[in-house]
């Protein structure tokens, strides 16, 4: 599988400097290897720390059960489910899988129109403020959301995107991304559903997040 790789920059939060990074329009064996060999051990260590500190399970990372190899295998070759990843310093820093075919807008002004639905998006454990103090790289989530918007524009969906957020990420999608909060979706694990209209997408891009 060939991936289109675009140059991007990531802010190293430990020294305040920008570092050269890559946005891949795919999740390949390289990313899955990084997930298994780098992310999982780091995630276990972080959870162990939380556990030993007496932090309740409800506050542990809610994506800890995600198996990227399984998810990727299930969607391999499916045009409806492209994947994205960010690589910096030789290691995968974030991954995302979207669905560009089976979801439709729920926001009244866009109802029924096609959108890019973000199925899974995750940061490497060392980039997550709730697990690493300080996190290594910042802005991974925003870059992946920008990639989803860019894909939405390329597919003529005008920047419309939607997603169900894990509770720990509600604030990011509502405040940083400026998406419309459509409330708890009882039909989807009781998660909040957020949507971005073309106007919100334009303003998110203009903010340079």
């Amino acid at each position: 599988m060939t991936a289109v790789i675009s140059p991007i920059a990531l802010l190293n939060a430990t020294n305040g400097k920008l570092e050269e990074a890559e946005l891949w329009d795919a999740i390949t064996e390289k990313q899955l290897g990084d997930w298994e060999a780098e992310w999982i051990p780091e995630l276990f260590k972080a959870i162990q720390k939380l556990h030993r500190a007496g932090v309740e399970r409800v506050h542990w990372p809610q994506s800890r059960h995600w198996n990227w190899r399984q998810k990727t295998r299930a969607l391999q070759g499916m045009l409806a489910h492209p994947g994205f990843s960010i690589v910096c310093n030789g290691t995968t820093q974030g991954m995302m899988i979207v669905d560009i075919t089976t979801h439709r807008c729920r926001v009244e002004s866009q109802k029924g129109k096609d959108l890019v639905y973000v199925e899974y998006v995750e940061n490497a454990p060392w980039n997550r403020p709730e697990l690493a103090d300080p996190p290594l790289y910042r802005g991974i989530g925003s870059i992946l959301i920008r990639a989803a918007i860019a894909l939405s524009i390329e597919e003529e969906f005008k920047g419309r995107i939607g997603l169900h957020a894990l509770p720990q990420s509600n604030g990011f999608y509502a405040n940083t991304c400026g998406m419309t909060d459509l409330g708890i979706d009882a039909s989807y694990h009781g998660l909040r559903y957020f949507e971005m209209t073309p106007e919100q997408a334009e303003s998110f891009i203009a903010k340079g997040n």
Partner: peptide
């Protein structure tokens, strides 16, 4: 209805067809 070009509609149709077939 979808405010999409013919190319965009047909690409969506192909993705959906592939997904359903799989």
């Amino acid at each position: 209805k979808k405010d999409l070009s013919k190319t965009a509609v047909l690409r969506q149709a192909l993705r959906l067809y592939q997904l359903v077939e799989a």
